[in-house]
Design a protein around this nucleic acid. Sequence first.
DNA 1: TAATAACATACTAATTTACTCTGGATTTAA
DNA 2: TTAAATCCAGAGTAAATTAGTATGTTATTA
Lengths: 140, 140
Amino acid sequence: MRLSSRGEYGVRAMLHLALNYNEGYISLSRIAAAEDISQQYLEQIFANLRRGGLIRSNRGVKGGYTLASPPQSIYVGDIIRVLDGPITPVECVSEEGDEPDCRCGKSDNCLARNLWMKLRDHINQLLDEISLQDMLKWKN
Amino acid sequence: MRLSSRGEYGVRAMLHLALNYNEGYISLSRIAAAEDISQQYLEQIFANLRRGGLIRSNRGVKGGYTLASPPQSIYVGDIIRVLDGPITPVECVSEEGDEPDCRCGKSDNCLARNLWMKLRDHINQLLDEISLQDMLKWKN
DNA sequence: TAATAACATACTAATTTACTCTGGATTTAA
DNA sequence: TTAAATCCAGAGTAAATTAGTATGTTATTA
């Protein structure tokens, strides 16, 4: 049940953008240095975040990245799903739709499947109710 | 945020033991066949479950495995922790104790860390309140 | 003593992860 | 107009993890 480093780094970087939301565009090199993350790796992560519509970019000198919407309307769940795909404990309950491809065969009446769905929903619910703004408020 | 196949298989196998709790010792070959899991792989999983005190075994003909305690007192969290170790989204908040070894450096006042702890606790709370007995009741 | 079944451990192939490497495109400012 | 800064794109890769196999031993029962 571990998060990928992409997800972890992505949340940290987005938090950095939220923290500096009023400063406009922030260069990736600054973020990478501040968060101690490989710059090239972070570039890949930001490419995904941008394609996912969570951040905006400007090229060239004075360019950089900024949040696509204010911190109060970006949720952790959005970030992780963009970077890692659906948040689910097992492939079998990955989609909200009901056409499972379980390795257990018995797609109907699979007791374990009920558990995985509960767990999936439980995790997503939490991550979808915590915004970047909420996290900023945790600051001491 | 995926569960390992060990965790998935382990829960399914334990559920199988719960379903047949009154029959006494069940052979691993029976479980492997019923659940369509590699028998040798399942042996490794059962070794861990046994060392973790969740199941009991008998050797020889008529031998097999049975739950170490009744289905109502074995929780999914126990099973997964025995098989996969601490349930945590990032290594940094793996222990309940407060000596973090974060890759982010700033172990104090790390906003992301607060999130990971919340997520860790949220997941563990759910998995620690669902027993095998609870899952049996989901049967239709 | 033969069959059955748990127990133990080493090995391995495939996949995934977490990056690095290389080069190009765009913008700003001197 | 040129140099520097910056984003952008995609291929490659080493290490770790995962999901198993393979082989053999020990214990129990009929």
